[in-house]
Every structure is written in C-alpha cells, then in structure tokens.
C-alpha cells in the first residue's frame, strides 16, 4: 500500500465485518450440524408417504421431500455430513501436501523437481475424473469422497508449503540452526512449521469451502455418502425431477451449500487479512 493510495482510500471498515460475518455464519452452521447429531425436528430416516411433497411451512419449516421426510431436518444432518467430509479431506490433503511441500523446500534439487512435477501431473488431471475413477474402484461412499477431495488438495498445500517454507528457510536463523547441527525434520518442525502455520490455516479455511462444494458435486453424481446419511448433493440430485412440482427441494440444499461455502470463504479472507497485512483488502 502506498501513501498515495492511503490518502484517497476511505478508511476501511469492511475487514472485521467480513471476518465477523464469516465466523458467525460458519459457527451457526457448525452448531446446527452438531445439534443434528443428537436432535433434529423430525427423524431423518423413516418415511411418511402420506406427508410427501408438502410445501414449506405446511409441514416443517422447509416442507417435506418425496418420501415425506422433513427437509429442514435433512439439511441439518446434511450439514454434519458435509462438514465432516470436508474437514477430513482437508486434514488428509493438507497434511500430505504440507509434508510434501516442506520436504521439497528443505531437500531441494531432484526431490523438489520430482515432487513439484508430480503435483503438476495431479493438477492436470481433471479432479472430477479422478473422483469418478476412484468411485468405481472403491465404490461410492464417505471414504471415496474424502480421498477424492483430498487428492486434489495435495498439490495446493504442497505449493503453499513449499513457497512459504522456502521463504523461511532462506532466513539467517535457519542457517544458524543448521550449523548447530539440527536435522531437517527438527528444523521443519521447530522453525518452519510454526512460521507458516498462518498461511496454512488461511489456505485450509478456503479449501474447506471448496471441499464442501466438491462434496456436493460428488454426491450429486452419486459418488458421495450412502443413504440414509443425508447429503446436500444427493438431495439436489433427487430433487431434479421434482423441480417443477416442489421447487423448495432443489432450492433449499443448494442454498445450504452456498451459505456454508460463503461463510468459510469470508472467514478465510478475513483470516488472511489478519495474518498477512500486505494483502489486506486486495481480494
């Protein structure tokens, strides 16, 4: 930011707003998801054929689906499912990616070239296709969704970890640590990781949003968790032929996905502003 700009730009109030809005939205959905584990307004399994396709407010807050299940209850349980898969995928992809990226940064040379080229190959392969192939090998279900989503996150985290890691590794005190005889693993754990944790956290938050989108897409194609576990993507897929008859069935789950992703993105942007003031207000 330059002095010139600072004069012209009004004081920015929106930064904390974004963070707060994102945090509130995310916390709200996480709380709903957690509550669904012990209580939902109506049971999410069990069918009530006589109550099928009731419009919103006439039966439950958001009406019922083609089997007479309460849509709001399904959305709550779907939130738990979405967040669980997204979190697992980010944890898996993030860990693998970070380790790979750090390894590349510390070792350099051939290791670096090879891992980064490997990331390029992974990146070039359209993620949805690898997910479809995985779905065939493992069969649809939670593990498939988690692995498929994690797979396309590995290169993302690897790149972030390598870039940020390389920045830290160039600093003098790392040289000092090396001279003191510390091994690569210790240097990575004691000096590099804590310093790039912020970057990784920001990336993880943003990737969580992407993971929720990806989970919805996979479930939409029938590669997500299996019934009776409710899933936003599968609800959308089921709703397709009911669009005219019962539009709420198509609108509600999509809105849920959108809110969850919006919350996480706002949160991620807000966190980035905090951790990296250089980028403040840029994105």
């Amino acid at each position: 930011m330059t002095a010139l700009d600072r004069v012209r730009t009004p004081r920015r109030r929106s930064v904390p707003k974004r963070l707060v809005a994102g945090a509130v939205l995310t916390i709200l959905l996480v709380v709903l998801a957690l509550v669904s584990l012990v209580w939902t307004p109506q049971p999410t399994s069990g069918i009530r054929i006589l109550l099928k396709l009731q419009p919103p407010l006439s039966s439950g807050l958001l009406g019922t689906d083609q089997l007479g299940r309460d849509v709001f209850s399904l959305l709550m349980a779907g939130a738990a499912n979405s967040f669980a898969i997204a979190a697992a995928a980010v944890a898996l992809g993030g860990t693998l990616g970070t380790v790979t990226g750090l390894l590349a940064a510390i070792r350099g040379g051939w290791t670096e070239t090879l891992t980064m080229r490997g990331c390029d190959v992974l990146f070039a392969f359209p993620p949805i296709l690898s997910a479809m192939l995985l779905g065939v090998v493992l069969g649809p279900g939670r593990p498939t969704a988690v692995v498929a989503i994690a797979a396309f996150m590995v290169p993302v985290f690897a790149r972030v970890a390598r870039a940020s890691g390389a920045r830290i590794l160039a600093l003098d005190y790392i040289l000092a640590a090396r001279c003191a005889g510390k091994g690569a693993a210790r240097i990575a754990a004691e000096h590099v990781l804590p310093n790039i944790a912020g970057d990784l956290l920001v990336q993880a938050t943003l990737q969580l949003g992407l993971a929720i989108l990806a989970e919805a897409g996979l479930s939409f194609l029938g590669l997500g968790p299996t019934p009776p576990a409710p899933s936003w993507g599968r609800m959308l897929a089921d709703a397709r032929t009911y669009v005219q008859l019962a539009p709420w069935l198509a609108i509600a789950p999509g809105a849920a996905v959108a809110l969850a992703v919006l919350g996480l993105n706002l949160l991620g942007d807000g966190l980035r502003d905090r951790f990296d003031p250089r980028l403040r207000g840029r994105t």
């Binding site: 999509g254 996905v257 959108a258």
Partner: peptide
Amino acid sequence: GLALPNFW
C-alpha cells in the same frame, strides 16, 4: 459466485 455450486 464462488459459493454457488455450478450445477445448482
């Protein structure tokens, strides 16, 4: 735009 799934 970032938050809405394209199939939705």
